[in-house]
Design a protein around this nucleic acid. Structure first.
Lengths: 189, 189
DNA sequence: CACATTATTGCGTGACACGCAAATATGTAT
DNA sequence: ATACATATTTGCGTGTCACGCAATAATGTG
């Protein structure tokens, strides 16, 4: 029952293979033209197995994005203790994102297809819990009683959403990191 | 083709009847035990008509909550022009919510059922656009270029989410308006 | 190597979303 | 009021899907 056992790793691998296949196929053919059967085949498992991992195409397509939360929290914990809270949070976010450009077509699709938007937002909101916990640790707050960590985390995740929105505007060429930095700066004023 | 015509009003009425029926049935019987057929019957239309209005049970159940956005924006526009931006936004939110308690069981359900959460978040995020526009008008910003209105609106909607989260905690008895006020105050500090 | 645990698979079932075309209701101009 | 145009509702058929269940295969353990 260990986490690093062959079993657990294989499960993660199939989950990832399924999700990658789902996203790739949706981008290639359009969301409407992807059968569950195709996703399963592309990942080398039976359709029934696909449904053991995900209970909807939407969930499969958005699953990978939903798993970056812990690294963000870790980036915050790595900030020096003396740094003011908001600066630390914002710098941690900037560091985490770095200057990697996300896949524009993928995010575009997730935000324009109504059936994917909800799943996408679930992923964004999921970033907040670990981030809020790291914030609570830093300011010595009880995350169960104090609103501040969660409100700040929610504001940060909101800034990410807004930056994404502007980054996707037709004709926009600015790198995501620049827009994210600008959005996060608005939280300081 | 008018907005106030009999046609348009009847359409809105059926839409609302369907959504109310869907929510009521889901609360009474649990989400799993609600057939599309039941919702349509409770609203007095055919199942096929139900599907002309909504393309999933989840959409029908969460539809009513998604339509409060314009009134929030109006509340902001009613604030005196001299008031500092954030105070105006926060006061407007407080005024809008007043001391009405939302339906705890309903929101509880929407946040605990994975298939509803995405739709619920879509509704919360939908609050941001009109609010951001009202903010942009107030500070004379171009909502297409300036990040500030949207970041602030997103922070407010995040605060609403966080307040909701705490309001739902088992054992919590504080009114929603108090928690919302506390969450919004964190945005000022 | 034997045994317990866990994952995968096939099959069957109930439900659902939606295209299409007919029927019905509504708005409008004469 | 009547006739006509437009929008909405409805029934039916179709392809798809999620999931319970039980059998099978794969993996970890003593």
């Amino acid at each position: 029952m260990e986490d690093g056992g062959l079993r657990a790793r294989k499960k993660l691998a199939t989950r990832e293979a399924l999700s990658r296949a789902a996203l790739r196929l949706a981008l290639e053919r359009g969301l409407e033209n992807v059968r569950v059967e195709d996703i399963a085949a592309a990942a080398g498992v039976s359709p029934r197995t696909y449904n053991n991992y995900f209970s909807s195409r939407e969930e499969a397509i958005c699953a990978l994005r939903s798993e970056r939360a812990d690294r963000i929290a870790a980036a915050l914990r790595a900030r020096p203790a003396g740094e003011p809270l908001r600066d630390a949070v914002i710098t941690a976010m900037r560091e985490y994102v770095g200057d990697q450009e996300p896949d524009k077509a993928a995010i575009q699709m997730m935000l324009s297809a109504p059936s994917l938007r909800g799943e996408f937002y679930k992923g964004v909101v999921a970033l907040e819990a670990p981030l809020a916990e790291a914030i609570a640790d830093r300011i010595g707050a009880d995350p169960a009683c104090d609103l501040r960590p969660r409100v700040l985390a929610a504001a940060v995740s909101g800034a990410v959403r807004v930056a994404t929105h502007f980054w996707l505007r037709p004709g926009s060429t600015e790198p995501f990191s620049v827009l994210l930095g600008a959005a996060l700066d608005e939280l300081l004023t």
